[in-house]
Amino acid sequence: MKHALIIENIEKRFANHLALDDVSIQVPEASIYGLLGPNGAGKTTLIRIVNQITAPDRGKVYFNGEPISSKHISLIGYLPEERGLYKKMKVGEQALYLCQLKGLSRQDALKGLKKWFEKFEIQSWWDKKVEELSKGMAQKVQFIITVLHNPTLLIFDEPFSGFDPINANLLKQEILELKRNGATIIFSTHNMSSVEEICDYVALINRSRKVLEGEINEVRTNYTSNIYEIQFEGFVNIIETSLSHEYKILQVDKNLKDTIIKIELLNKNISSNDILKRFLEFGNISMFRRYLPKMEDVFIKVVGEANSLTE
C-alpha cells in the first residue's frame, strides 16, 4: 500500500510538557484517516507539525515518500479547528488573497473560486464583508479556500462544527468526493458518529502517545466483547428469571410485537450457537448478531482505561 504521509517517531516538548511522545502514523493514499483523541492529547500539535507550522524535536515526516519541506505547502490544504477570516475584508477579495498565499496565481484562484461559489450557490456573498456572514456561511467560505488549490493532502480539524445538519451533510459529500478524486484526508474530530460514517482508518492519541491504530472496522471488531443483539417475538420476563446466571441483560427495547435485547455473556465457554439454541425456546427470532461496538465505545474504553490506570 502506498502512503501519502508517514510520521515516524515524532517527539515534541514544550518547556516542561511533553506534547508528543514517539508518535508514528502511516496514512494510506486516497483514504480518510481519522485522528482521534481527547482534548489536549496532542492532535493539534501533530497537525501543526505536518503543516510545518512547528517543527518536531525528534522524528521525521515523509510526504509522498520525500522528507516534508516547504515545497509541499502548496500540496496541503488545512482547515484548522480555530479558524476565522478578516472581519472587515470582503469575502471574494479575502478568498483570493488566501488562495494566492497558497501559491495560486490570481487568475487561477479567481477561476476556481467562481466555480466553487456557483457550486455552493453563494455568488452573492462575493462583495459582502465577512462580518456580515453567519458562522456557518463563513465556514463554507473557509472550506472552499482550503480545497481550492487542489491539495493532495487535506487536513480537517473539526470540520463540522458550526454547521447545521443540511450543510454538514453537504460538506460530508464534498469530502467523500475529494477522496474519490484521489485526495488523502486527515480528519480530526470528537464527533464519533461521523468518524464511523466516513473514515477508513483511525488512530487514537491519548496523553501524547498513540494508543490505537488501524482500519476502522478492524479496530471496532477487536473491541467487540461478548455482547449479542437478539430480536424476537415473545416475553422478556421469562429470560430474565431463567438465564440470569449465564447472561447479563444490558438493554431491552419492546415494540408492539418484537423485543430487542442486548446481552453480555458472563461465561466465556458459551458459544453463539448455545445462545441461539436457548433463545429458540422463547419465541420467533428475527435477528441475531454480535454487537459491533461504536467508535464512541472504543474511545471511552481505551481513553477511560488508560486514564484510570494512571490516576
Binding site: 505547502i73 484548522p80 479558524r83 498565499l101
Partner: peptide, 13 residues
C-alpha cells in the same frame, strides 16, 4: 479572528 493559523499554514510566521 483566528485567521492566523490558516495563514501560517501557507507562509512562515
Amino acid at each position: 479572528s483566528r485567521i492566523v493559523e490558516v495563514i501560517v499554514s501557507s507562509v512562515k510566521p
